[in-house]
Every structure is written in C-alpha cells, then in structure tokens.
Design a binder for these strands. Structure first.
Ligand SMILES: [Mn+2]
Ligand SMILES: [Mn+2]
Ligand SMILES: [Zn+2]
Ligand SMILES: [Zn+2]
Lengths: 155, 155
DNA sequence: ATTTTATTTTGTAAATATTACAATTTGAAA
DNA sequence: TTTCAAATTGTAATATTTACAAAATAAAAT
C-alpha cells in the first residue's frame, strides 16, 4: 500500500501543505468507510505513529472539511463522524451497534429549498433505527414511526 | 396564559407523572418553535423558576423524547436541539445566525429504506447554509454545493 | 385527610467531546 | 541552506451531557 500520491494530489490541488499526518488521516478515511469519529481515527492511527496528537486529528479534519475534501456528519448527536465521500448521499445509523452506512439516493427537494431564498451549502439525510444484522440477532420489535406516519412499504 | 391542560393531558396519556417542571418545559417548547437547546430552555425558564435544575431539564427532555412527545435534532453538531413537533419534516440551519427553521416536506425514500431490511425509527432531513435574512445583510457569497452537484433551480 | 412509596427534582461531581493556546517542529519557498 | 509561515504537539480550558445521592413530591393506598 504505497499509494500516497492520490492524497498528495488532493492536498496540493487545494493549496494545503503536504504532511504525513494529513496523508495518514486521508488514507485512513478513504480505506475505512465506516464514518469514524475523531477518537477512532486518532486511536487507530496512533498505533503506527505514537507521536500523533489528537489536536492534529481535529485540526486536520477541520481543514479537510473546509476544503470539502471530507464531510462532517452530525447524525450521532454525541460525536461528529467523518466521511471521505462528499458527493450527496444519505446515511442510516443503527442505534444498537452504532454503525453508520451509506444510502445512495439524492434529495429531490434541493431545488425547492433554493427557491425559498436561503443559500444551501450542505444537505444531510439521516435515518435512524436498528440495522438488519442487529434485527436478526434480537428480533424486530416495535417501529415507532409506524404510529405517526403512513409507511409506504414494509419489508 | 392558563392553558396547562393540554400538557397535563399529554403527560397523563403517556403514563408520566405531572410535574410543574415538565409542564413548563413542554409549554416552552410548544410556544418557542425555534428548536432551542437544553441550555436555552434552562436559562429562559430559570428566570421564572430560580430553583430549576439543569439536570431536570435534561431528564425531562430525555423522558419526553422517549415517549415521542418531542424529537431531538442533531443538526447542530455541538449541541442537541429540541422540537415539540414530532411529525416528519425537514430542517434548515443557518451557519451564520444559528437559526433552525422547519421545512415542511416528507421524504419519498422511506419505503425504499424499509425494503433494505433495516428498521427505521427516525428520519431527519437537514440542510445547512446561510438564511435569507443573513444573506440580505452580508451578500450571497459562494455556494460550495454548486461545484459538486447539479443544482436543480437557482433563485 | 393522612400515610406511603416510587418517582422526580436538585446540586454537585464526573465524563466526554472539542477547542484554545503556546512552544516546537517542519514543509516548502527563496 | 536559510527562512518563515504553517502545522504539530502537549496541555489546559471549555462546553455539553451524564452519574449519583439526598431531598422533595405526585399520586396511590389507607
Ligand atoms: Mn457516507
Ligand atoms: Mn421542527
Ligand atoms: Zn446494528
Ligand atoms: Zn441566518
């Protein structure tokens, strides 16, 4: 795995200095599409680079997101999660196991919102519930949404 | 303003004890549809009830959300915001002034997601940008989304 | 109306995530 | 090679949320 060129390219294209920490963090996000937290990125990368600072992780994530190289997900509510993929897509979070997975659809409402006069910079579609794997382990249980809206299709 | 009956009804219907603090918090959320934070609810209500505890605010918000009397928004990323309205709708947050406003649309993807085998309990549509008012004060500026996807309609 | 009891409220302390800051290091331009 | 703005590091501070135990109280039982 010696493919750093990809990340160096991206950094240079954005006028950012190329540092080993930035390359490591980008590579980690690119190869771990689980939308990890800053803490997970830090603790995993620290194994191979013990001098890595948590502040560097936060600084880097902030810088990358400002350049739209990564996007920040607020789906969890307790910690920010980071996504190497910046093209619009939705996310599902399992409240049992914490997994966050991509849902590849694009939102049909963007045009409508633009017409309201606001400037839209980001859009996030978040769904929360219990994932297929967890359901198979623990049973399907109740679906709170069903009581409050009409479900289009049931599995 | 002596309409506590509404909130008492809701609490009783959900098998929750009726307390003045819970009534105050529900009434506040019902009458302040700005999706306030726990801190804002606390500091505003504390003026009329100086013995109110912040823990009570958090406990109450947690209890109300578990009974689906309110919903929790993770749109901000730095603090949770609370919404008395629980029927599905989207939100827009202005990154300049912090305002969060309702967008009344419903998501056409719910059926598709259900078909994937996950149990969906919540859905959140979050849009972020700069609101109309802030734009009029400070100019429209750049729209980062425009570079990454095709905008359907521009104002 | 009084007693009883499980629940709620309260205040403080602890936990967690994130940011601020100053000293040191370093990437890259000169 | 020298220079220097920018990045990294470690620590301290901040902010939000949760844990916990004692006191208060809503509501059920008497
Ligand atoms: Mn994603
Ligand atoms: Mn709302
Ligand atoms: Zn799961
Ligand atoms: Zn605004």
């Amino acid at each position: 795995m010696e493919k750093y060129e990809k990340y160096i390219e991206i950094l240079k294209k954005n006028g950012m200095k190329v540092t080993p920490q930035r390359i490591d963090i980008m590579k980690y996000l690119d190869e771990h599409r689980i939308h990890p937290s800053a803490e997970k990125i830090y603790s995993d990368l620290k194994e191979d680079n013990p001098s890595l600072s948590k502040t560097t992780v936060y600084n880097t994530l902030e810088a990358l997101s400002e350049h739209h190289i990564i996007q920040i997900l607020t789906i969890s509510g307790s910690e920010l999660r980071y996504d190497f993929k910046t093209t619009p897509h939705h996310h599902f979070m399992c409240k049992k196991c914490g997994a966050i997975i991509d849902i590849d659809v694009d939102c049909p409402y963007l045009g409508k919102f633009m017409g309201m006069g606001h400037r839209i910079d980001e859009m996030h579609g978040y769904f929360k519930g219990v994932c297929k794997d967890c359901l198979e382990k623990e049973g399907r249980g109740e679906n709170p949404l069903k009581t409050e809206m009409n479900i289009v299709s049931e599995v």
